[in-house]
């Protein structure tokens, strides 16, 4: 069932990026199984009351993968098809990078990498100070961990013992210009995050059963948890898979047709 939702989201993603003629399909397709799993099993939110103060927060730090977020928000009733059709156009609620100021259901204004976890720490601290139950989930990219602020944030989240904060790292091994290990090797990211005081689990980020189990583990573990999700950039569309050129490029008409055939 969640697999079906993920497939529909993949279709939304390639259509949105194609229609806009711009966007980031690769990192949206690598992240979408994780996002569908999260929204399908963990997120306590209400489409009829998007600003509900006690809602769980999802901080999409790799905000260029906005089509992935918009597709799930469409599936659960926050965004209409015409909202998706307006992606990246003037006045659209679907801005190029996810933006809380523009979109109901978006909790963070992204676009500059490395800031999301810090923002999530703020949400988690507020939840604890107010004795609320809401949790904060942060998704970041693997290339994003090259930003120094990520490590400032990792250090402070465990120092402040934020049990209500978890991160998912989309380990798709590709960033804007090339493969991550070509641009700046980040090495054994799981060990590095663990050494900053986090509980860490590595999974296949496209196996929905493993995704759901890992999310439940993170949700129920009394320390900040990091899920390192090994994924394939462009997953689900053969010619986008593991292909750095589809980090930030829209499919043309022919490529869209091929992609949608593969995503049936």
């Amino acid at each position: 069932m969640l697999e079906d939702a993920a497939k529909r989201c993949r279709q939304h993603i390639v259509k949105m990026v194609h229609k806009a003629g711009a966007g980031h399909p690769g990192g949206s397709l690598s992240a979408i199984d994780l996002i569908v799993g999260l929204y399908g099993t963990q997120m306590r939110i209400d489409a009829s009351n998007p600003n509900w103060t006690d809602r769980d927060r999802f901080v999409m730090s790799k905000g260029h993968a906005s089509p992935a977020v918009y597709s799930i928000l469409h599936e659960i009733g926050f965004l209409s098809q015409s909202d998706l059709d307006g992606f990246r156009t003037l006045g659209s609620v679907c801005q190029g990078h996810v933006d809380m100021k523009w979109t109901d259901g978006v909790d963070f204004s992204a676009g500059s990498l490395g800031m999301g976890l810090s923002f999530g720490i703020g949400c988690a601290l507020a939840s604890r100070m107010d004795e609320k139950e809401y949790n904060t989930w942060v998704m970041m990219g693997d290339g994003e961990t090259q930003e120094g602020q990520v490590w400032e944030a990792l250090m402070s989240a465990s120092y402040h013992n934020l049990n209500n904060l978890n991160i998912i790292i989309d380990r798709n091994r590709i960033q804007n210009d090339d493969f991550v290990d070509v641009q700046m090797e980040i090495g054994d990211i799981a060990s590095k995050v663990a050494s900053f005081g986090w509980a860490v689990k590595e999974i296949d980020g496209h196996d929905m059963e493993l995704v759901i189990d890992a999310l439940q583990w993170a949700s129920s573990t009394a320390s900040p948890c990091a899920i390192i999700a090994h994924t394939v950039k462009g997953k689900g569309v053969s010619f986008m898979e593991d292909n750095p050129s589809f980090h930030g490029k829209a499919p043309n008409d022919e490529e869209l047709m091929l992609a949608l055939e593969e995503l049936q």
Binding site: M115, F119, I121, A126, D130, A153
Partner: peptide, 15 residues
């Protein structure tokens, strides 16, 4: 940098 972004998160939650 972390401090300012944490402040943003706090502000988003009513602080």
């Amino acid at each position: 940098q972390n401090m300012v972004s944490v402040a943003a998160g706090l502000a988003s939650c009513g602080k």
